[in-house]
Amino acid sequence: MNTPVTVIGGGLAGLTAAIAVAETGATVRLYEAHSTLGGRGRATEPPHVAHEGAHVFYADGPHYTWLKKRGFVDGLGWPAPVDAAKIAFRVGGKLRRVPPLGMLRAQASGWLHAPVDLDFHSWAARRWDDRTAIRLANAISVVTYDADTGRLSAAFVWDLFQRALGAKIPAVRWVRGGWQRTIDRMVTRATDLGVTIETGARVVELPTGGPVIVATDLDSARRLLGDETLHGTGGFAALLDIAVTKGRHDRTIVFDLDEAGFHECYTMQDDTIAPAGESLYQLQMPIRAGESRDAAHHRLEALADATIPDWRSRKTFHRKSTAKNRTGALDLPGTTWRDRPAIDRGDGVYLAGDMVAAPGMRGEISINSALIAAESAVAALRTRTISGAEIRLRTE
C-alpha cells in the first residue's frame, strides 16, 4: 500500500477521489494544472462570491450522504418566506406566480415512466400537447444548459424534471459561503489525510507505477490517454452575474418557459456572499444552435430587465461569461448514464468527472464516479500488494 495512487485534476471529482483513497490509508498524490484547487467549484473572491453556474446540492442521493458525513456541507442557508413568495414563471413574455395548467399536470404525474429510446419533446407532446412539451423542456434547461432540451432522451429529461420541479418538495440545499466553502473544507481534509498536492502541475504523460485516477474534463482525458472514444454531450449557456442594491420588486427565482432562461437570487439564502444591503443574482440562457454569444447575452439581459427592474442603474457587480460542457453529461435518445465512457479504462487507469458512467446529475456524477474510481483503485492496489508479497515469499 506504499505505492501511491495518482489523481490528476483537483476539482470536485479529483478531491473526492483523493480523500476517498487516502481514508483507506493509501498514499495519494494529486496534480492540478491550475494555481488553485476546486475546478468549476471555484468562486470569485469576496465581497461578491459568484460561481461558474448554478451551485446547489440535492440531498437525495449517496453523493450527499458522503459529503454530509464528513461535514463538507455543514451550515446550510434557507430562504425566508418573503423571498420564496417572489418565485415566478415567464410565460408569453409576462411573469406569473404559477406555472401554466399543462405544467401543473406534468408536475403531478411523477408516477409516469418515460421511455429511454424516444426524445422528450415527442413523448411529452403525445402525453400533453406541443406547447406544454416545449415549456417543460425549457423549465428544466436550468439543469441541462441546453437550448433544445426536448431533443434529449425522454427518460433522462423526465427524471431531471421530477427531481427539480416535481410534486415532491425538491431536496435543494445551499451551503453558506457557496461551493467554495465546501471545496475549502475538502482541501483541508485531503491535507490532513496526508495527500500530496501539487498545483500548477500540468500532467502531459500518464504516470506509471500505480493506479491513476484521471479526474479532468473529457477533452483533457482524451488527450492524456490518447483515447478518441472519450466524447460526451453537454450544454452551452450564457451566464450573467449581477449584484444590485436591494429592491422591493426584484424577483428571487424565475423559470423562463419562453426561452429556457433562469434567474436566481443567491443572497436570499446566504447573505454572506454580497455586502450588506445588496442582492447577488445569477441568470443563465442556453445558446441556440448558430447563435452568437453576444446575441444570447442580449436575450439574457432582456430577462434581467424583467426580473430586476432598473438593474443597470443599481448594479454594484457585473460579470458576463459562457459555460460550455459544464453541466455534466446529457443523454440522447437510446442512451442512459451506463452508455457514457466507462470509469475503469483498464491497466489501473480510472476516469472520474461529470460525463462518465455514474448516476446523478451535474456535480453528483463527479462525486459518484470519483467514489467508484477510488474504490477500484484501492482494490487494484491491494491486489498488487498481495501479489507482490506472494512473489517475495516464493523467492524466499
Rank of each mutant, 00 (worst) to 15 (best):
347 D>H: 09
366 S>C: 15
285 M>D: 06
272 T>I: 02
354 D>E: 10
305 D>N: 15
339 D>C: 00
366 S>W: 04
291 E>H: 06
290 G>A: 15
355 M>C: 15
306 A>D: 12
330 L>E: 00
345 R>P: 04
294 D>K: 15
309 P>D: 01
305 D>K: 12
284 Q>T: 09
339 D>N: 15
270 D>H: 12
343 I>N: 05
316 T>S: 13
288 R>W: 08
362 R>F: 02
292 S>C: 10
364 E>N: 03
324 K>R: 14
363 G>L: 07
329 A>K: 02
351 L>W: 05
270 D>K: 10
329 A>G: 14
352 A>L: 12
306 A>Y: 01
337 W>K: 00
338 R>V: 10
285 M>W: 10
352 A>N: 08
363 G>C: 03
312 R>E: 12
355 M>W: 05
289 A>Y: 02
344 D>C: 00
328 G>E: 00
320 K>L: 13
330 L>N: 07
362 R>S: 06
347 D>I: 01
300 L>I: 06
292 S>N: 07
334 G>W: 06
297 H>V: 02
294 D>N: 13
347 D>M: 03
312 R>M: 05
310 D>F: 03
278 E>V: 00
336 T>E: 10
359 P>C: 08
281 Y>I: 11
285 M>L: 08
312 R>Q: 11
361 M>G: 07
268 M>N: 03
337 W>E: 14
325 N>C: 07
278 E>C: 01
324 K>C: 10
351 L>Q: 11
349 V>F: 05
276 A>F: 01
353 G>S: 12
330 L>D: 07
267 T>V: 11
283 L>D: 14
310 D>R: 13
347 D>K: 09
303 L>N: 09
317 F>R: 03
266 Y>M: 10
300 L>A: 10
312 R>G: 05
285 M>C: 08
358 A>V: 05
330 L>H: 05
353 G>M: 07
280 L>G: 02
348 G>V: 05
269 Q>F: 07
287 I>T: 08
343 I>G: 04
280 L>R: 04
332 L>I: 02
304 A>C: 01
361 M>Q: 15
278 E>S: 01
306 A>P: 01
357 A>G: 01
293 R>D: 15
296 A>V: 08
361 M>N: 09
353 G>L: 07
304 A>F: 00
273 I>A: 12
317 F>H: 12
304 A>N: 08
300 L>N: 15
327 T>L: 06
291 E>P: 04
294 D>R: 14
281 Y>H: 13
299 R>S: 12
298 H>Y: 10
302 A>W: 01
334 G>T: 02
316 T>P: 05
281 Y>D: 05
344 D>N: 09
267 T>G: 03
363 G>Y: 01
342 A>D: 11
279 S>G: 01
324 K>P: 10
285 M>H: 13
268 M>A: 11
300 L>H: 13
318 H>S: 11
331 D>K: 06
347 D>G: 03
339 D>Y: 06
272 T>E: 12
